[in-house]
Design a binder for these strands. Structure first.
Length: 549
RNA sequence: GGCCCCUUGGUCAAGCGGUUAAGACAUCGCCCUUUCACGGCGGAGACAUGGGUUCGAUUCCCGUAGGGGUCACCA
């Protein structure tokens, strides 16, 4: 019996690999085009780090006229989560990062290099495993879990490296006949790669992000086909990225230490290896220690978290780009209105070590993103969010669209737009008082400022309402009248004047306008009071001036 | 523990043997004809540590410490 016959015995129906080699020919792409992929396992929601990785992969593919595809790595059936694929596809769509090819729904896909779901590629992997068996580079292993555990215990006791390698690889040198006999007798087995590596030899790897990294060669006879017939990650990676013609594997740096294995696999299978770029994870400070953002422990690890808070997806992407290429920020400053697709992203500029996640910075980016939206855009995006997360806000905005647009348009669209909204969940609190029905329900707990005598305040408000307030006034006239009002009550007309003679005056025009601001809006801090009054309209302003208690 | 990687202000980070060691966020102060926000100006704040190499090290080499990753029939 020879290797080929053993291979036939194990995978009698598997096709010859030439079939697949012909079926998935080289891609016809321009020179320098990068083919990348996002290859998550459908085990729940998308992690912010995965999103970052997908964003980077997609960006470099787009910039080079290449392809970005989505492959679903569902070879571990135990970890599978219902609708896992849908969640991933949806998240990518929401972030405007739909793949060029690959999985586009739980069971739908596009592209010529599929299937893109690994569980549907079982036959392909088996063909390649058969090929490896037939050339003696893989073999069946009959070790039971107990046996492996025992081996590990021995290794630990002897303080040697754990794993299935060298002398420990018990079934590596089993004769073909013996192996065949066991298989025929129904002894359970899996398929292992017969590693030609030696631990005392080094391999050189040049990672696009990490740079030169030298490792000992891989000498582990890793499992390539599991008991359930599905491949392990390593084997699937080699087969898929070969067949799908991935040029650049961009993935989390937890994979870096598998590079020697992966390179060896490509080598032994006769595949051209891809280039690798290992991305550092996004970290979190946990009691003074850095650690990866964890899906289980940290709500902010899931991309949905940001969606729920109402942080625009664009802001999340800009923040991630910021972490990924720190010159993004400068570029953004110089290209305020450009699409992020125009940014010249460089993989090799990515940081070698993991960055601590900074919510404050994200919110700052978000503020800037939102400040650039027109009133109409704010209206649409806020409603889209509110319909899911805050019905009350949605109703408020929708009840009178025209009016809402005016409210949202206050101090927006000029060259120094307001930057007071960082997320849609802040919005309601910011605009509540512009709606009379809300204003009346707010329990006003006025924090009176410098002028705090209630009787005096009422007098000021009355005087203002009767003598000075005119909705038709332009801003200068309106402001001059406030000064007149201040003067009438013996306050300083100008703030400067007050500051120069602090003993001469009790207060100044700013304090007077604060009184009016509080009466009209219920708060001491608001956007431009003139603009607010214009939007509220004469009747509402008068009503509020007169009803202050 | 073995192997691999990392270490510049509170955070993200420029920097590739000679710099007053950029910039952004945060923070503090002042200014911006009324608050807030914006904007402007300014302040404080960093090369983990010990040895080399060098005329000269944040930059190169070695050690130490600290941090991270990885060692599955999980990805």
């Amino acid at each position: 019996m020879n290797y080929q016959e053993l291979a036939n015995l194990i995978f009698p129906d598997a096709k010859d690999i030439s079939y697949y080699e012909a079926k998935y020919p080289e891609r016809n792409l321009p020179e320098g085009a990068i083919v990348t992929r996002f290859a998550p396992s459908p085990t729940g929601f998308v992690h912010i780090g995965s999103l970052c990785q997908a964003l980077v992969a997609r960006t470099v593919a787009k910039r080079t006229g290449g392809v970005f595809f989505l492959r679903v790595e569902d070879t571990d059936q135990k970890r599978e989560v219902e609708n896992g694929v849908t969640g991933i596809v949806k998240s990518l769509q929401e972030f405007d990062m739909a793949p060029d090819e690959g999985q586009i729904g739980e069971n739908e896909e596009i592209g010529n290099y599929g299937p893109y779901k690994q569980s549907l590629r079982k036959e392909i992997y088996q063909s390649y495993a058969k090929y490896m068996l037939s050339i003696g580079k893989a073999y069946p292993c009959f070790a039971t879990p107990e046996e492996l555990e025992e081996m590990r215990a021995k290794q630990e006791a002897a303080k040697v490296r754990t794993g299935y390698y060298g002398v420990w690889a018990k079934y590596r040198n089993l004769s073909i006949e013996e192996a065949a006999e066991k298989i025929k007798a129904g002894v359970p087995y899996i398929i292992r790669f017969k590693s030609p590596g030696r631990e005392d030899r080094k391999i050189k790897h040049k990672d696009i992000i990490k740079g030169n990294v030298d490792f000992p060669e891989n000498d582990q006879d890793i499992v390539i086909i599991k008991a359930d017939g599905l491949p392990t990650y390593h084997f699937a990676h080699a087969v898929d990225d070969h067949l799908m013609h991935t040029t650049h594997v961009i993935r989390a740096d937890e994979w870096l230490s598998s590079v020697p294995l992966h390179l060896q696999l490509f080598q032994e299978m006769g595949f051209k290896p891809p280039k690798y770029a290992h991305i550092s994870p996004i970290m979190k400070n946990d009691n003074g220690n850095k650690r990866k953002l964890s899906k289980r422990k940290d709500p902010e690890a899931a991309v949905n978290y940001y969606t729920e808070l109402g942080i625009p997806n664009l802001a999340v992407k800009e923040y991630l780009l910021n972490i990924a290429n720190s010159n993004f920020e400068n570029w953004r400053k110089q290209n305020k209105d450009a699409s992020i697709d125009e940014f010249d992203f460089q993989l090799n500029k990515m940081s070698v070590s993991g960055a601590l996640f900074d919510m404050v910075k994200l919110l700052d980016v978000s503020k800037i993103v939102i400040s650039k939206y027109t009133a109409e855009e704010v209206y649409e995006k806020a409603i889209e969010w509110a319909k899911v997360y805050d019905k009350e806000l949605a109703n408020l905005l929708e009840k009178n669209k025209e009016y809402s647009l005016k409210v949202l348009g206050i101090e927006r669209g000029n060259e120094k737009p307001r930057k007071d909204i960082a997320k849609w969940s802040d919005l309601k609190e910011n605009i509540n008082y512009m709606y009379d029905e809300k204003f009346e329900k707010i329990k006003h707990n006025y924090e009176l400022q410098k002028i705090n005598d209630k009787e005096k305040i009422k007098k000021i408000l009355n005087t203002y309402a009767e003598k000075y307030f005119n909705i038709q006034d332009d801003k200068q006239v309106w402001f001059d009248k406030l000064k007149d009002l201040a003067e009438e009550f013996g306050y300083a007309r100008e703030v400067k004047e007050y500051k120069e003679n602090p003993d001469k005056y009790e207060a100044h025009v700013g304090d007077v306008s604060t009184v009016i601001r509080i009466a009209v809006t219920g708060r001491a801090n608001t956007p431009d009071l003139y603009a607010i009054m214009q939007v509220l309209g004469k009747d509402t302003v008068l009503k509020r001036l007169n009803s202050f208690a």
